[in-house]
Design a protein around this nucleic acid. Structure first.
Lengths: 335, 335
DNA sequence: TTGTATGCGTTATCAA
DNA sequence: TTGATAACGCATACAA
């Protein structure tokens, strides 16, 4: 690792001032073509790259976006991360990844760190912070996009992107109803989950739309994974053996539920139909193949990055947007 | 987003020099307790945090580590990322994530960007760059850890961490042999995969250890996913219907292979035993539950970060290390 | 224990 | 079209 050449090295070699080199490297006007080419050639030869650190100090811009997620190992977030990274890369932005490990203190630390590192903007996924604390932190950032979280009121330079979970749940229930299933249970995920609550709302709306009454006994909260679905389904079955449809919090929960059904001798979908959410790769790997409410995760990541950069580009503070992404029911074998 | 206070704001408010503030904030000696506390109180009150940018420019250290992965949406890498982020967080390091999308040009761009951003070190996962190009890029970095890739020779300030794939494959084959399975095929993954080649080596070594001869017809390369395993298994079965054991490139491939077997009326494990690699969550979600060669991915991520920081801490350039991580066979139902 | 001068590598500003 | 000078916010080296 040898010493990096600096702008003054190039200036000396090209026999011009540092400013001319700076202008040439940034493709700014005010440099003759001849000089520009001479500088470019020299820069290539000496392997010169402007120091992002020094540039950031001078311009107060870092070309860096912070991405905060509860768990990067969760496919839900890793796919969003992939989309965001991709969109950022195209525009020359770097992504600094903060994993909160579902820990509130660490989420605060992440927000704080982004501020201290002066990122140009942040993408916050599924924040669990109390709304007022969240908002004060977000307000200190130059720009932000919240994924899977609403704001109490519009904030300058910040947008929100939410999956229309309510719609997704309604689609699922409507599908059950269209197949003559009326004893529909729900494995609603963790009680604290915002999207879980929205799906529960959609579930109830879907029932109401079909003139079905909501029975609290058909509702079971569960951990958002295979084990949670397995345990939750068994609990449901113990209380209501005649359930003939289940809307699950996500594909993992659905997979666990199917496993529980099969162990109890129930055939899926003949005896019990199951619908999941997310359309992860798992959906086509289990048997029966899973009918699920598909969410374009990478698309959300890209959208988040694109709107964030749009906010940053608008010198005048853009009015906040509250975007919604509609999911889509993918019918396969389980329902 | 209001203006950040700077060190000179604090200095003025506390009626001391900037240096005294700097020393106090960095917990360096040479400041009386009284003054230190006064500064600390003022800093808290005004919400002062040192600018990482300015600090980086002065110290030439960024407290930032680059993580380069082919695909963050791949569980293999997202788990490594989680472990690395975690270990970095504990030590106050940020992680900038670079996704190459399996694209060589983008991998080069990532290496270049890390150099331009002056990261303190980099973790490179499963690099596909030609060895000499890889090495020249790595040499420009202050420190590096390569995961799943060897070096042609030891490099200063760089270590490698490799899964002992050969051992894992041998364990799998030995397990088959111990269960009286002798017609053992292999779904070896992509031809370009380094770990795929090592597993093939281990497979052959395992056969040799059991005095079995290697039959090229029992070898099938495939895409490293469910579809690849499915297609590969069908190809294998078409050529050698009497296969009674298959070692698969990873859990996804194993899941695809099992599906193919079942479709062909073969019972797993009675007719054909299957072993995967990785022990992803999927392994316990399919039936039969998958016997697999477990790799502690998050542990590798942590190890990578820890050794990287160890290299960085050693002022004198540490001799390169070539670390190996041994996998472990987890016996479940499929073999 | 505290302070002063200087430099880190770049861009903004203003002048030539 | 060019260049000189002064920031940007902090830390290092040295002085008091």
């Amino acid at each position: 690792m040898k010493k990096r050449p600096t702008i003054s090295d190039i200036a000396r070699a090209a026999d011009v001032s540092m400013m001319t080199v700076s202008r040439a490297m940034n493709n700014k006007p005010g440099v003759s073509d001849a000089v520009r080419q001479r500088i470019q050639a020299l820069a290539d030869e000496l392997g010169y790259r402007p120091s992002m650190i020094a540039r950031s100090l001078a311009t107060r811009q870092t070309a860096t976006i912070g991405l905060v997620v509860p768990d990067i190992a969760n496919p839900f977030f890793s796919h969003i991360a992939r989309g965001a990274e991709d969109a950022g890369y195209r525009r020359g932005y770097n992504l600094v990844l903060m994993n909160t490990a579902e820990d509130l203190d660490r989420e605060v630390a992440a927000l704080d760190s982004m501020w201290q590192n002066e990122v140009d903007g942040a993408i916050l996924c599924s924040s669990r912070l109390p709304i007022d604390e969240l908002e004060t932190h977000v307000e200190r950032l130059p720009a932000a996009v919240l994924v899977n979280r609403m704001l109490s009121a519009a904030l300058p330079a910040t947008a929100t992107i939410n999956v229309n979970d309510t719609l997704g749940a309604q689609q699922a229930v409507a599908h059950f109803v269209s197949r003559e299933r009326t004893r529909i249970a729900i494995l609603a995920g963790p009680v604290y989950s915002i999207s879980g609550q929205r799906r529960l709302d959609g579930y109830r709306a879907g029932l109401a739309a079909a003139s079905l009454v909501f029975d609290p006994v058909m509702l079971e909260h569960c951990a958002p994974d295979f084990q949670g679905g397995y345990a939750g389904m068994n609990a449901l079955l113990a209380r209501r053996p005649r359930i003939n449809a289940v809307f699950a919090f996500n594909d993992l929960v659905a997979a666990g539920a199917i496993e529980a059904c099969q162990e109890q001798g129930k055939h899926v979908p003949d005896d019990i139909a199951v619908i999941g959410v997310d359309d992860t790769p798992l959906a086509t790997m289990i048997r029966p193949r899973l009918t699920t409410v598909r969410v374009d995760l990478a698309g959300i990541g890209q959208l988040a990055m694109d709107t964030l950069l749009a906010i940053i580009d608008e010198a005048d503070e853009l009015a906040a947007d509250a975007l919604q992404v509609d999911p889509e029911l993918v019918v396969r074998e389980s329902a």
